[in-house]
Amino acid sequence: MIDIIGLIFISVGFTFDVFGCLGLVRLPDVYNRLQAATKCVTLGTCSILFGTFLVVGFNAAGIKALLCMVFLILTSPVAAHAIARGAHRAQVKLWEGSIVDRYKEDKEGEF
């Protein structure tokens, strides 16, 4: 029974990871792509890890999977934040359909 629940979690995780990759291809600029990459890939991968934990149970591999979930949730937004900030500082343009860029307005003099 618990194996089946674990496999369901793993399949849901795969589905969300695929959506994240589709987002990477379809969305127009680096910031929008980061949105798809961080959100879908974080929850998708966490779901896969949690499914793994359910399947293998409370042993060495299961505990490592749980630890990986915690660190993934902590680090993936930080990485996205760093990439977005770095891209903006390197003057990567927003997509031409973007409607507002307050960051550029405020940081005009600093570059």
Binding site: L27, N32, Q35, L94, G97, V100, Y103
Partner: peptide, 26 residues
């Protein structure tokens, strides 16, 4: 919220018209 975010991104990515309206706000 994290789960809602995933459904939201999945909906936007799968939608044929790509319903996005991006920008950087303060």
């Amino acid at each position: 919220e994290c789960f809602k975010a995933n459904l939201d991104v999945a909906w936007r990515v799968l939608h044929p018209a790509l319903p996005i309206n991006p920008g950087i706000v303060k």
